[in-house]
Design a protein around this nucleic acid. Structure first.
Lengths: 338, 338
DNA sequence: GCAGCGCTGGAAAGCGCTTTCCCGCCACGC
DNA sequence: GCGTGGCGGGAAAGCGCTTTCCAGCGCTGC
């Protein structure tokens, strides 16, 4: 166990060259090394099973090959899709992604960013949804500053205005388009299962939805708030049911919430879509196959992850760039004419 | 941009102490430092916003705080659940997890392990399912050896016999129990949607299932193989349908495959469970809420991740430990009496 | 024929931290 | 009184690598 690891120095000695030469051969240096020496080094490195010590390289070069990825909950399909996009791009670039999960605690986000800073990660993608809570927001901002000061880049998914590169989904526009599509189905009374009110994503989607209803001259929806999770959707739907609202169509601001809501409806014997239409937002893959298939606003989740990673790795200019991705209304079996 | 980062040396100078003292204060050294100096160091560190350079620490200590996690596809709920367990434990231990995805390519697994070795990761959890392919298996074994030689620990989820710590789900036993439960429902003709034949997980589950049928004196199932994915399940189910088999109950060796299979059945107008019962394996969370809810063998996925992480971080003895976790048959709406 | 240049190889100075080793100091004990 | 430890502090030697700087050498151009 624990045989000493092969170092560059050993390779160099074995190959009969200097440390400098070995280093130049084994890592794309600008300097040329004659073919013969080069071969010798390559050969002995291979033979000894040499693997460069990434920490030492990072230290010497003052830059690491780590890319951070911060999500709330990796089991949430929304995040795991984004994660897939990010890792794909990062791995193609020869980088390594470190995954941090916050469990929706803002302070964890700050901690993770600090850890990532300690590791001199060259970039980080923040995929957690931003809150409007003043205190945590400013601490996060401070940490982001510290990170960029240090030469790291940070990109956010779906949370603009932090002075960072951002990929923002058309939350407002998507909500609005969805509302219009649903009113065209003939619905007049709507309910919304909103997320926690301090999440801007939830607010934007709700605001867009309201705007869409207004466009169509339909009365504003009743709103029930719940956590941004399956259980939150379940609970909010239960509240809705208890409220004796006359809504014929309910919009859950998140597919995952819609999933919970459908479970609640089913449990209470409310048929979807006959008794109640329901729509979500995100278009997470699993819900395309369920019965009934969920109407939703499709977001190119993996692509969003790729874009974010691209932004953050492209070096990029000094100023914050914003990439908007549009949501596309997809009406499926969970919404019916009224 | 890129203001120079605060180093320990700066903190030490500012606080008027030596480098050694500052180091001792800011990292749990065995050595004591007097209260006054200690306070001064802590204070200036805080004030300067000092964050230790993890690469330098790793180099000096010859050990990093990285834990690797290798999965096939992070969007697959099976893997994302395990990932959640692993990250939770790692983060509690103050470690950082680096996520690698293989896209089911064995050679990527080897590459990732090598990268992890370069980073001197202290441990790695391999969650991808093992293949029986000789060549890739031996390269993987070599890489694992190199990794452990270097002092790193590795644990596998659901793939034993690699000389590493392992958490193995009761694939065989689970398959068997499921088969018995299904025969008790009165089914006589079974079909199985198996994974690629070189995956041992798939083989074990299938073998167990066959054994269970044999126990009950039921004729062996027809088997249709497909990829270990939703689409693989879909394709295999289509084959099954085309085959005009008389099966009344189908077992998909994976919940994710079952999901695809249900989509295929639905598309072809086969009602579940009236025309065909279906069961899966894993009990991924999303499928508990679908209609019909999927019968399956429940595996404590997150817990398995936690256990694996625990094994790999506990230091552990020299010899490979194996933790078995049992699967529990859960019959839901997707399987009916026959 | 020689200054000057481009090119390759090596010596060595770090990168930011940990840790060993040493030193001075104080409290004891004989 | 002085030797003995124990203890807190600092100097300095690395950890494994990159990269600057310099030396040597064979050319070209006048």
């Amino acid at each position: 166990m624990s045989a000493r690891q092969v170092t560059l120095a050993e390779v160099a000695k074995q190959a009969g060259v200097s440390l400098a030469t070995a280093s130049r051969v084994l890592n794309g240096s600008t300097r040329q090394v004659s073919g013969e020496l080069s071969d010798r080094v390559l050969h002995t490195a291979e033979q000894l099973g040499y693997v460069p010590n990434a920490s030492a390289q990072a230290l010497a070069r003052n830059s690491s090959s780590l890319v951070g990825l911060v999500v709330h909950d990796i089991t949430d399909p929304y995040f795991s899709c984004i994660a897939a996009g990010v890792t794909r791009v990062a791995e193609e670039a020869g980088l390594v992604v470190v995954l941090g999960t916050t469990g929706r605690r803002p302070e964890r986000e700050v901690e993770l960013l600090s850890t990532l800073r300690a590791h001199r990660a060259r970039a980080v993608v923040l995929a957690g949804s931003r809150t409007t809570d003043r205190a945590s927001q400013s601490r996060l901002a401070a940490e982001i500053d510290a990170f960029t000061e240090q030469g790291g880049r940070v990109a956010c998914v779906s949370q603009a205005k932090l002075g960072t590169d951002t990929v923002v989904p058309g939350n407002r526009a998507g909500g609005r388009a969805l509302a219009r599509a649903l009113t065209e189905l003939g619905h007049k009374k709507f309910a919304v299962l909103g997320g926690p009110s301090e999440l801007v994503v939830a607010r934007d989607r709700l605001a867009g939805f309201k705007a869409g209803l207004a466009d169509a001259g339909v009365t504003p929806p009743v709103v029930f708030n719940g956590a941004f999770t399956r259980d939150g959707g379940y609970a909010a739907a239960m509240e809705l049911l208890a409220s004796k609202s006359r809504a014929t169509c309910v919009f859950a601001v998140t597919d995952v919430m819609a999933m919970g809501a459908m479970a609640a409806l089913r449990e209470r014997g409310v048929r979807v879509p006959e008794d109640m239409s329901i729509a979500g937002f995100d278009d997470i893959p699993t819900l395309r196959d369920t019965v009934p298939a969920l109407s939703t606003v499709r977001l190119p989740l993996e692509e969003m992850g790729e874009i974010a990673a691209g932004l953050v790795l492209d070096g990029g200019g000094d100023e914050a760039r914003t990439v908007r991705v549009a949501g596309e209304v997809v009406l499926r079996a969970s919404t019916a004419h009224n």
